[in-house]
């Protein structure tokens, strides 16, 4: 039943893509057939260098990678991606019994480490997991971007007010801090909440966290 579920999920997210890097053509082609058979878009690469030349997609994506590639080891590639801040989830494959390597790979953030020959379902599960994670990331990023837009629409006063409100200050206190009347503070507060589309202070705090707003210590 899981396969049905994943099929449905996957079918609605047609823009998601799986990247496959393996030097063995059979491996590439059969994996491609496998992924496509569940409705995933697949892009194939023979080497890490080929992959490095493409532009990352906007949609969720993941990477299926043989740990022994010509020219570069999979782990090193993983580290490079991390350095370049490309946070694409990785699934490793290996034809050898590289257990210590697997541990290392997992510690470095790989989704999964599969030894050939693996069961096709195993691979598919790993891919789905990877794509969901990536989606979450994208979504989260979107949310933050959104918040940032809202934040940018605030006046400077309103931004000051946010910091104090998030810190838990009363209107009276904020007024004292800013040197304005309480009425004025209330007005700013209302406007700010509206612009930020926050329903409560709790909401606001969560937004502030995402945005990284902290009241300046002083």
């Amino acid at each position: 039943m899981s396969s049905t579920k994943s099929q449905r999920d996957l079918a609605t997210a047609a823009e998601r893509v799986v990247f496959v890097i393996d030097d063995d053509v059979a491996m590439r082609e059969t994996l491609s057939s496998l992924f496509r058979s569940v409705g995933l878009r697949v892009e194939l690469f023979g080497s890490a260098r080929e992959f490095a030349q493409i532009k990352m997609p906007d949609a969720a994506s993941c990477l299926v990678l043989d740990i022994r590639l010509p020219g570069i080891s999979g782990l090193d590639f993983q580290a490079e991606l991390a350095r370049a801040d490309i946070r694409i989830p990785i699934i490793f494959m290996t034809g050898h019994g590289d257990i210590p390597m697997s541990v290392q790979a997992m510690k470095a953030g790989a989704i999964d480490f599969l030894t050939k020959p693996f069961r096709d379902q195993e691979m598919l599960d790993a891919v789905v997991k990877a794509l969901e994670r990536d989606q979450k990331r994208i979504d989260s990023q979107k949310v933050i971007a959104d918040l940032r837009v809202r934040f940018d629409s605030l006046t400077s006063r309103e931004r000051e007010v946010i910091a104090f409100v998030v810190d838990g200050l009363m209107n009276k206190q904020i007024a004292a801090e800013l040197g304005v009347s309480e009425i004025t503070v209330k007005v700013h507060r209302v406007n700010m909440m509206r612009k930020m589309k926050a329903r409560s202070v709790i909401d606001l705090v969560g937004m502030a966290d995402l945005l990284g707003i902290r009241r300046p210590k002083g």
């Binding site: 396969s3 099929q7 063995d24 059979a26 491996m27 082609e29 059969t30 994996l31 057939s33 496998l34 496509r36 058979s37 569940v38 494959m93 034809g95 050898h96 030894t115 050939k116 020959p117 693996f118 069961r119 096709d120 379902q121 691979m123």
Partner: peptide, 24 residues
């Protein structure tokens, strides 16, 4: 072992894909 594993893995993948293509 490696040389054997590769084709075997490809076989497994292909077979799985085949079933899925047919099972849709």
């Amino acid at each position: 072992s490696h040389e054997v594993n590769q084709p075997l893995a490809a076989v497994v993948n292909a077979a799985g894909a085949c079933l899925r293509w047919l099972g849709g």
